[in-house]
């Protein structure tokens, strides 16, 4: 069974969001998503300074099997892409909610955002998807 930490928000496309003390948002893919993808071998994260819109593909995670887009849940400016993943993409498998974060975004005030789910709602989604 995959982990769904209680202190995060989730999207229906299997990203998680953590609000950091400075108000920026850290984004990654969920434990469920990394399990479904299998061993990750390549991760491409956006560069700091890039403007992104909610719902837009902003990162790519590739396992041996396949490439998957990661969609930004918020509109804003990227403040950091996780530099560690260039050399150690497997951290997304081993620590999806910690060291495996993909990017940090400073949200545009009043900017569009994807519909977010609570941990309970996300767990329900996983069950409905039959995994």
């Amino acid at each position: 069974m995959s982990k769904v930490p209680a202190d995060l928000k989730y999207t229906k496309t299997h990203e998680w969001l953590r609000t950091l003390p400075d108000g920026s948002i850290e984004i990654g893919i969920t434990d469920h998503a990394q399990q479904a993808l299998g061993d990750l071998v390549f991760v491409e994260v956006p560069e700091a300074g890039r403007a992104i819109k909610a719902g837009e593909p902003c990162a790519v995670v590739e396992s041996v099997k396949a490439a998957s887009d990661v969609y930004s849940p918020v509109t804003g400016e990227v403040t950091a892409g996780n530099p560690r993943l260039a050399g150690e993409p497997e951290v997304v498998n081993t620590d999806a909610y910690g060291g495996g974060w993909l990017m940090r975004v400073r949200p545009t005030p009043g900017g569009a955002a994807a519909a977010l789910m609570s941990p309970a709602e996300y767990e329900k989604l996983q069950q409905e998807e039959g995994h």
Partner: peptide, 20 residues
């Protein structure tokens, strides 16, 4: 195993880690 369709067959694509 994770089971996938392969040419009309339900086949194991991996058990634990494909790289392993």
């Amino acid at each position: 195993a994770r089971i996938v369709d392969f040419g009309g067959w339900d086949m194991p694509v991996q058990y634990s880690s494909q790289i392993g």
